[in-house]
């Protein structure tokens, strides 16, 4: 136990206060208020891998590490689309995931937002469209914001989430 406490004390607080980026700080604080304005509470995200290579998932997971600490900003990942405000969708949409993705979208209560993450989610990427791939996410469900990159860095994904919330409602 003592070892654990020592390690915790030595690690200290590593969370970059609002990612160290002043612009992102004000961006996020403003949007945090907007999130509260729109939803009246914290933002709940359901991640859906619709055909990704798993590269984007690595960076989405990184958002939960103590440096980015997005939970500290009132954003958390939830286990069911029924609890979610926003879907974070990766991959070209695999044909074998098309129905599951649509069902997940339908299960998400209004108002809902969708962010397509990664080059594949934005354009179909290197996989494109084929018998097995529907290509970009917006070919299957409506998308509010897109985050390019292969994979995009955690800060870019965060910006994408925030820009979806700022986008005009459909």
């Amino acid at each position: 136990m003592l070892d654990i406490l020592k390690r915790i004390a030595r690690t200290g607080i590593v969370s970059e206060p609002q990612l160290k980026l002043a612009d992102l700080l004000s961006e996020r604080d403003t949007l945090h208020a907007e999130i509260a304005g729109i939803l009246g509470r914290a933002l709940a995200i359901r991640q859906v891998d619709a055909g990704s290579c798993n590269g984007c998932e690595l960076e989405i997971n990184a958002l939960n590490n103590p440096i980015y600490n997005i939970e500290g900003a009132g954003i958390r990942f939830v286990a069911s689309p029924r609890h979610a405000d926003l879907l974070l969708v990766t991959g070209p949409v695999a044909k074998n995931m098309e129905i599951a993705l649509k069902r997940t979208y339908d299960a998400t209560p209004e108002p809902k937002y969708v962010v397509a993450v990664g080059d594949c989610g934005c354009t179909g990427g290197i996989f494109g469209e084929s018998y097995a791939s529907c290509g970009r996410v917006s070919n299957v469900i409506p998308v509010d914001a897109e985050v390019s990159g292969c994979p995009p860095a955690p800060t870019a994904i965060l910006r994408g989430i925030l820009s979806a919330l700022a986008s005009p409602r459909r």
Partner: peptide
């Protein structure tokens, strides 16, 4: 099989250099 996205067919539409990225 849910994330089957046709990788092998895709390979056969590429040149040898591009194949590394896929």
């Amino acid at each position: 099989g849910y994330v089957h996205k046709g990788i092998e067919q895709r390979f056969s539409q590429m040149d040898l250099q591009q194949g590394q990225r896929l």
